[in-house]
Computed example of a mutant assay.
Amino acid sequence: MSTPWPYPRWIAHRGAGKLAPENTLAAFRLGASHGYRAFECDVKLSADGVPFLLHDATLQRTTPEEGVAGDRRWSELSRLDAGGWHSRAYAGEPLPTLEGIARYCLRNGFALNIEIKPTPGHNDVTGRVVAEHAAALWADAPVKPLLSSFQPDALAAARAARPELPRALLLDSLRDGWLAEALALDCVAIVANHRVLEAGVIAQAHGRGLHVLSYTVNEPADADRLLEAGIDGLITDAVDRFSPA
């Protein structure tokens, strides 16, 4: 590849996958305890524009509340229990802000892949605000966070706001024009479902200057196949089974 790749090959999904409540500081700490130095998380906006970590558009799967998370102000979201759904040991674990996770990663020298996860209908503003916050938080860091999204318009808004931050197009399938789309967004990488990646696809992306990451790689056979094919990054839930070394 023509561009140096500054990120570790192994990346802990949503902090520590399924071993701790996803997208919480507790999950990041658990992933770090298994030796991981790169993490992935999902970021969306509260009603008053605070970037915070949550995967779903709604609250009911990972908190005691219901409804659209992005409809609530941060002062309310910050009081929710985002850990008790997972296990009693994590009861009371709060939703973290992007700022809180950034400070944890920066203090420890960890890399971060921020998936821009807009509330439906808020793609542009989420891409812009997340990029602006990320640029400010990592202003003095030698390695910037990788911004990724399934939503091309969110990535376009991030590029318009902070073109210096690296971007990656997320792909669940290799739709027609995927490569041209990633290049048009000035992406440095694609992040694709492991089921659609094989050596020819990886070589095709590499040939156009793109790095290739894969999610969510939890089985040794899938990891071995992708490593043999030249994958640049593996996002995994199985932080207790795959050594990042």
Score class of each variant (00 low, 15 high):
residue 18 K to Q: 14
residue 121 G to F: 06
residue 148 S to P: 00
residue 182 A to G: 09
residue 138 W to L: 03
residue 104 Y to W: 15
residue 46 S to C: 15
residue 125 V to H: 05
residue 145 P to R: 00
residue 22 E to V: 07
residue 122 H to G: 02
residue 99 E to W: 03
residue 31 G to Q: 13
residue 21 P to D: 12
residue 73 R to H: 12
residue 236 T to N: 07
residue 185 L to T: 00
residue 236 T to D: 01
residue 232 D to Y: 01
residue 93 E to R: 04
residue 157 A to F: 02
residue 65 E to F: 09
residue 155 L to F: 01
residue 6 P to N: 12
residue 24 T to W: 02
residue 37 R to Y: 07
residue 135 A to Y: 00
residue 150 F to Q: 03
residue 21 P to M: 10
residue 244 P to T: 07
residue 122 H to E: 14
residue 228 E to L: 09
residue 197 L to C: 06
residue 88 R to Y: 06
residue 237 D to Y: 01
residue 4 P to H: 11
residue 105 C to P: 07
residue 178 W to K: 04
residue 167 R to Q: 00
residue 228 E to A: 14
residue 123 N to Y: 03
residue 91 A to L: 00
residue 226 L to D: 03
residue 117 K to Y: 13
residue 195 R to G: 08
residue 56 D to Y: 00
residue 78 S to Y: 12
residue 157 A to Q: 04
residue 204 Q to C: 13
residue 183 L to D: 01
residue 205 A to D: 05
residue 11 I to N: 15
residue 230 G to D: 10
residue 205 A to K: 06
residue 60 Q to L: 11
residue 161 A to R: 04
residue 216 T to C: 15
residue 63 T to W: 15
residue 131 A to V: 04
residue 117 K to W: 00
residue 118 P to K: 02
residue 139 A to W: 13
residue 225 R to F: 07
residue 241 R to F: 08
residue 8 P to Y: 08
residue 115 E to P: 03
residue 90 Y to D: 06
residue 209 G to Q: 11
residue 7 Y to I: 02
residue 231 I to Q: 03
residue 89 A to R: 10
residue 222 D to G: 01
residue 80 L to T: 12
residue 160 A to Q: 09
residue 222 D to R: 07
residue 202 I to A: 04
residue 219 E to P: 08
residue 103 R to K: 13
residue 124 D to S: 04
residue 204 Q to K: 15
residue 221 A to I: 08
residue 166 P to A: 06
residue 146 L to H: 03
residue 93 E to M: 11
residue 12 A to S: 11
residue 185 L to D: 00
